[in-house]
C-alpha cells in the first residue's frame, strides 16, 4: 500500500466532507533532500501531498506561530510519531483544542538529515534521491551513491522509541510499534564519562558555531513564548553577540525552557545552518525528566506535562528532604 496515495485520499475526504478547513501536510520541495510544508484548503491541492524520508518538518509549529490563522478553523495535520507528541503537548498546554484538530498518523521510518547526506557526498550537490527502504540512493553530477538508511537519518530518528503517533484520528499504513533503540543514550553516556574540562571544551566548540539566527527556536513546536527571553531588552537577559559566552547561555536556557516539553523531533538540529549538535543536551534533559518525574513529553493526552504538575512524593531535596 502506498502511504502517499492513502494520505492524499484521506485529505481529500476530510476537505470534501468539511471535517477540516485546512490540512497541514508536506509537498515535494525545490530541493531533492527536503520536502516543504503544504497548506491544503481545496480538494485538488491534496494531490500535491507526499510522505517520505524528506518530510522532516514538524508541522505543529504552525499552531503556535500564528494563532489567529487557526481561530475558529478546524485543522487537519499529518504527523509522524514525534509530531503527534507535539500536537498533544500543544493541546495539553491549551494552545489548541483537541476537537479542532484532526490528527492523521503516519508510519515513520525516520527522516533524512540533509547535512549527513552531504557529508557522504563530500560536499557534491545531490540532484536526485531515491528511497529504497533500507538504502537510499543519491545521485548528482558524475556520482551515484547507495547509502544505508541509518547513515543518513536524523539523529533524532536513530534514537526514536515512538515512531507511531500515539494520539490520532486516522492512522495510515501499518504501525511500527515501540522501537527499543537501546543505544539511544550512548552519546550522552559517553559524554558523561568525560572529565569536566573535556565536557566544557566539547560544549564550547559546539556552541561557538552559533550565529544566533534562531532557526532552532523558530522551528521548535515547544518554543512559542510571545516574546522570547533573548528578545527582551528591558531588562536584557543576555547579550546579542555570537560569542560562545552569549550563545551557550541562549542554548542552555532554551534547553531548560523545553524541559519536559521537548519531544525530541530533531527539527532544531536539522534546521541549524551551522550543524550544531543541539539534540544531545535536549535528550539529556528529557532523560532527567523521565528519571525524576516519570514523564515523557506529549505521549499521553490524559497526562500532565512534568513541569506543570506537582506530586507530593516528588523528590525535592530542599523542600521535602
Amino acid at each position: 500500500m502506498n502511504t502517499t496515495n492513502e494520505l492524499r485520499k484521506n485529505i481529500k475526504s476530510l476537505i470534501a466532507e468539511k471535517k477540516v478547513d485546512l490540512f497541514l501536510g508536506w509537498e515535494k520541495g525545490s530541493l531533492p533532500l527536503a520536502a516543504t510544508p503544504l497548506f491544503v484548503t481545496a480538494e485538488d491541492q491534496a494531490d500535491k501531498a507526499i510522505f517520505d524520508v524528506t518530510c522532516g518538518n514538524n508541522l505543529s509549529i504552525y499552531f503556535t506561530k500564528d494563532k489567529k490563522q487557526f481561530e475558529g478553523r478546524k485543522v487537519g495535520i499529518a504527523v509522524k510519531g514525534c509530531d503527534a507528541r507535539s500536537v498533544v503537548l500543544n493541546i495539553l498546554e491549551k494552545q489548541i483544542k483537541r476537537e479542532n484538530v484532526v490528527i492523521v498518523g503516519l508510519p515513520c521510518n525516520g527522516v533524512l538529515d540533509r547535512k549527513k547526506v552531504l557529508a557522504k557526498t563530500d560536499g557534491r550537490e545531490v540532484l536526485e534521491l531515491i528511497d529504497n527502504g533500507d538504502t537510499v540512493i543519491v545521485k548528482g553530477n558524475g556520482f551515484d551513491l547507495q547509502l544505508n538508511r541509518e547513515e543518513v537519518l536524523s539523529s533524532s530518528c536513530l534514537a526514536c522509541i515512538y515512531p507511531d503517533a500515539q494520539e490520532y484520528d486516522f492512522f495510515i499504513g501499518e504501525a511500527r510499534g515501540e522501537v527499543p533503540n537501546e543505544g539511544r543514550l550512548k552519546e550522552i553516556e559517553e559524554f558523561q564519562t568525560l572529565s569536566s574540562l573535556e565536557r566544557w571544551e566539547q560544549t564550547r566548540a559546539e556552541y561557538e558555531k552559533c550565529i544566533r539566527c534562531y532557526a532552532c527556536r523558530n522551528v521548535c513546536p515547544s518554543c512559542y513564548c510571545n516574546v522570547c527571553f533573548v528578545d527582551q531588552n528591558d531588562p536584557r537577559w543576555i547579550g546579542g553577540t555570537s560569542e560562545y559566552t552569549d550563545t551557550l547561555i541562549f542554548h542552555v536556557i532554551r534547553n531548560l525552557h523545553v524541559a519536559g516539553r521537548c519531544v525530541e523531533c530533531g527539527a532544531c538540529q536539522r534546521a541549524c545552518p551551522m550543524d550544531i549538535n543541539l539534540l544531545m543536551l535536549n535528550r539529556k534533559v528529557a532523560m532527567e525528566v523521565k528519571d525524576r518525574f516519570g514523564d515523557i513529553a506529549g505521549l499521553d493526552i490524559n497526562g500532565k506535562p512534568a513541569m506543570s504538575d506537582f506530586k507530593e512524593d516528588e523528590k525535592q531535596k530542599f523542600i521535602m528532604g
Binding site: P37, K65, R212, C213, A215, R217, N218, V219, A271, P273
Partner: peptide
C-alpha cells in the same frame, strides 16, 4: 509567507 517561520537563516547566510 504562510510557511515562513521567521528565523534568520536566510538573512544570516
Amino acid at each position: 509567507s504562510a510557511k515562513c517561520i521567521n528565523c534568520g537563516a536566510c538573512t544570516f547566510s
